[in-house]
């Protein structure tokens, strides 16, 4: 495996994501937790860019990093979110969870590395997915085109807006 620029970037992104994922769930301050989550989301966007899905990466940054994280930050400001962050530090409570998660992760690693994936495309030469293709696929009604889910998502979001207003409004 020769060391190309792409590989170097990938490794940096991989380490970045892994470290901040773990930090997100272990930090003691919720504000930091959100910040680390933002880093993880940006890292994910970077992976999408690496894969050539630039549109997806852009959406990820806009919606996740721009929308969701801002929402979380505001809700943290509105509440006393730092109190009682964790269920406790007792070993009796932490250990079973940690063990189960580790065993589960181990199982997944085992499956990943024993399963023989058959890559159709080269993992080295990445082409960018053109915006035109995405546009046609998104609003077309034929095979491999996604107008129906698109509309369904539209209706779902509308329902969410109404629901969110109903829940949040003051009586």
């Amino acid at each position: 495996m020769d060391i190309s620029l792409q590989n170097v970037v990938f490794i940096i992104v991989a380490i970045f994501i892994s470290v901040f994922s773990v930090l997100t769930v272990t930090t003691k301050k919720i504000m930091r937790s959100v910040t680390y989550l933002l880093f993880v989301l940006l890292g994910t966007a970077a992976i999408y860019f690496l894969l050539g899905y630039t549109f997806l990466g852009a959406v990820q940054i806009m919606v996740y990093a721009g929308g969701v994280v801002v929402l979380l930050v505001f809700s943290i400001f509105l509440t006393k979110a730092d109190e009682n962050l964790n269920i406790g530090t007792k070993i009796k409570k932490v250990l079973p969870i940690l063990l189960t998660v580790l065993i589960g992760g181990g199982l997944i690693f085992f499956i990943i590395f024993t399963h023989n994936f058959l890559p159709m495309a080269s993992t080295d030469a990445i082409e960018e997915l053109s915006m035109k293709t995405i546009g046609f696929a998104l609003v077309g009604g034929g095979k491999n085109q996604y107008i129906l889910p698109f509309e369904a998502i539209g209706v779902l979001l509308l329902a969410c807006i109404v629901g969110g207003l109903l829940i949040a409004r003051k009586r």
Binding site: I17, S18, S21, V22, T24, V25, I30, S33, V34, L37, V40, L72, S75, I76, T79, A81, E83, N84, L85, N86, I87, V94, I97, L98, V101, L102, G104, G105, I108, F109, I112
Partner: peptide, 23 residues
């Protein structure tokens, strides 16, 4: 996978609902 495991761990460890949402 690392991200998933971190998420599950956080979901089980956090007591704060917002933090669980982050996980």
């Amino acid at each position: 996978t690392i991200m998933l495991c971190a998420g599950i761990y956080g979901f089980l460890m956090r007591k704060n609902t917002l933090a669980m949402l982050i996980s």
